[in-house]
Structures are given as structure tokens and as C-alpha cells.
């Protein structure tokens, strides 16, 4: 296979990993909302935990983006 073509296909495949981060983030905020709507008074106290979970989950999606970017710009 052509070297450049393989690189671009690899970058595209690496971006599939973002689907996992998408599921995770949807789950995170969905669960938070369902919990927050049941007990709105307790929701504010859990916001730092929510943001921490958001950052940790989002980082995994960023990792796959990073692999894609490395393939596109760094791999010769």
C-alpha cells in the first residue's frame, strides 16, 4: 500500500477512539443530570467531581486525537 495512504487511513482509524470518549461523556453528563434532577439540592456539591470526571474522560478522547495528529504531522 502507498505509504501516505496508509498514514491517512491510520489517522482516520485512530479517530474512531473518540467514539469511546463520546459514550463516556454522554454517560457522565446523563447520569449526572438524572441524579441532579432527582435531588437538585445535592447537585451543586458534586459539580467538582463532575468536572474532574469530564476532564479525565475527555483526556482519553484527546489521546486518540493525539495519535491521529502524530500520524498526520510527525510520522514521515
Amino acid at each position: 500500500m502507498d505509504h501516505d495512504a496508509a498514514k491517512y487511513i491510520g489517522a482516520g482509524l485512530a479517530c474512531l477512539g473518540m467514539a469511546g470518549a463520546g459514550i463516556g461523556l454522554g454517560n457522565l453528563f446523563g447520569q449526572f443530570l438524572s441524579g441532579a434532577l432527582r435531588n437538585p439540592s445535592a447537585a451543586d456539591g458534586q459539580r467538582p467531581t463532575l468536572l474532574l470526571g469530564f476532564a479525565l474522560t475527555e483526556a482519553l478522547g484527546i489521546f486518540s486525537l493525539l495519535v491521529a495528529l502524530l500520524l498526520l504531522f510527525v510520522v514521515k
Binding site: 476532564a55 479525565l56 475527555e58 483526556a59 484527546i62 489521546f63 486525537l65 493525539l66 495528529l69
Partner: peptide, 10 residues
């Protein structure tokens, strides 16, 4: 390290 680096880079 990779979490901070990758977030900023991306």
C-alpha cells in the same frame, strides 16, 4: 504527563 500535554497540544 500525557493527559496535560495532549489536551494542550490537541
Amino acid at each position: 504527563s500525557v493527559r496535560l500535554f495532549a489536551n494542550m497540544l490537541a
